[in-house]
Nucleic acid binder design. Structure first.
Lengths: 118, 118
DNA sequence: TTGACATATTCCTATATGGACATATGATGA
DNA sequence: TCATCATATGTCCATATAGGAATATGTCAA
């Protein structure tokens, strides 16, 4: 089998840097496709295709206004990512890193004292 | 061109569900490969391959102990994901959703009052 | 209707991937 | 040295991509 589909979930959808860029722009507000094309400097069809993927995972919503289609961010779709990665947040807090250092020190001390404890 | 490489960054590495599972197990502490094989019920070569990807993006570290290789989580590698997704956190807080409803209401009112604003 | 603009879809292709399986490497103990 | 355990790597293959280019759809204006 190949990789999990890009449309399988938000994780896979935003793994593509271009799609994160699109979301970053949309975070500033609703925008028509051509705006994204201009801002991001990608070809129009690619933008449309990326938007389709984002729409399929629910990360953007669209509404028509005249000839244009206005895309808008739906951050809710990113919540599963946040929820998952949040569990690892402690790993890079200073407190935790300090703890890491302490543990390393303890190990070194144990070795230094020989392994026949107490 | 095809998709961005799985080893390109943490985003792509953890887009694969199996790799997230591996990290979830390692969050409980350092473990040899065979433990992961047992816990996750995947074939040993696949586990090794997934671990390689995770190692290449820095999400895990390894040290040898006798015949075994003990893998251990390095949450730091996930920080870029957290940093990125955190910016969208407001999108799903209640306060923000309330604001959404208010904006929708305002739009509806504008339409109801005709478009010649005062 | 026609023409122009805005966006979406289709076709093409090189490419990386993940699983299955077989096998290589590495460490240990006798 | 050999046998055994633990892990890593290599091979084969179906498959989904992302970009490029061409084209289809949709909407407005006259």
């Amino acid at each position: 089998m190949a990789r999990v589909a890009t449309t399988a979930d938000a994780f896979n959808a935003v793994a593509e840097p271009r799609r994160r860029q699109i979301l970053d722009v949309l975070a500033g507000g609703e925008r028509p496709v051509n705006d994204l094309v201009g801002v991001l400097g990608m070809a129009q069809p690619q933008v449309s295709k990326h938007l389709r993927v984002l729409r399929e995972v629910g990360a953007v919503e669209v509404r028509g206004q005249g000839r244009q289609r206005l895309y808008r961010l739906n951050g809710q779709a990113l919540k599963p990512i946040h929820d998952w990665v949040k569990r690892y947040e402690d790993s890079w807090t200073e407190r935790f890193e300090q703890l890491d250092v302490v543990l390393e020190d303890l190990k070194r001390q144990e070795k230094g004292a020989g392994d026949g404890g107490g």
